[in-house]
Amino acid sequence: MSTETVTSLRATGARPPRRARGTGGRATAVRAAGAATRAGAALSWVVIGVGGLAMLVPFLWMLGVAFRTSPDLYADPARLWPVHWTLHGVRAVVDQLPFGQLILNTFVFAGGATLLLLLFDSMTAFALSRLRFRGQNAVFVLILATLMVPFQVTVVPVFLTLFHLGWLNSYQGLIIPRATSALGIFLLRQAFLSLPRELDDASRIDGAGNLTLYWRIILPNAKPALASLFIIQFAALWNDFLWPLVVTNDVHMQTLPAALTLFSSQSGVDHAALMAGAAISLAPLAIAFIALQRYFVQGVANSGIK
């Protein structure tokens, strides 16, 4: 806050109010301006603090409701925390879903698809940013255009394709169609473009081919961008709800969020079960986020720069 006061003082000093005469009047004006700025700043901090709370309270409340009995909730919905604790909601979820299997599936799906995606997207981004070939622009535009296709447009034909390949209810069916993304190619291309050209020249002088340049030079230098993409994609796939449901019709092949969403969507007025389902599906990412916060934020931050 001190810098702001200084700034406003300077500004007032540079362009003195015309009406103000004599030092006394000026000092009052400066003081008034300072107070107004301070009040404004204080108010904006209050607003922003309340906003910050509004971001977290829904999740806290979700946690609370997951452990509250119905009469407890009905008696006082305004309270965040249970008075009468119950494990009924959690038990309802755990009893009905094959938990270990679901967690394994989710990791295989989100992890496998993200790793493959990093490989394929970085290869394409490498070709688009460091190599020259005919149709380069057309390819780039085509890739960006696919970013605009709503999933629901393609879901039925994709389903038919997976059926003909015999990939329904399989890990390859879950993973391979998700192993590339327009956004990933776009972000990595931006990152690669920002690496100096001298890197290429130096390695080419050493006789390195495209593969060496890609694997030994470009990828190691783009680690932050790759890490960002990993986090963004992993989170997106973890949360993906519709895709796993399309590919699998066996609860043992489903992912955790898909199964929990199905579960929650039919819990009706069983508030504890509903919120326990939501909380459990959110928990792994939330824990990862709190532990690796810096990387999450950095990852997303990187996506917009350059």
């Binding site: 879901v155 039925v156 389903f159 038919l160 059926f163 329904l168 709800f241 519709l242 449901l245 399309v246 019709n249 898909a258 199905l262």
Partner: peptide
């Protein structure tokens, strides 16, 4: 959602 998609699936 799931039921609907699976119904389509079955019919296909």
């Amino acid at each position: 959602v799931a039921a609907a998609i699976a119904a389509i699936a079955a019919l296909l």
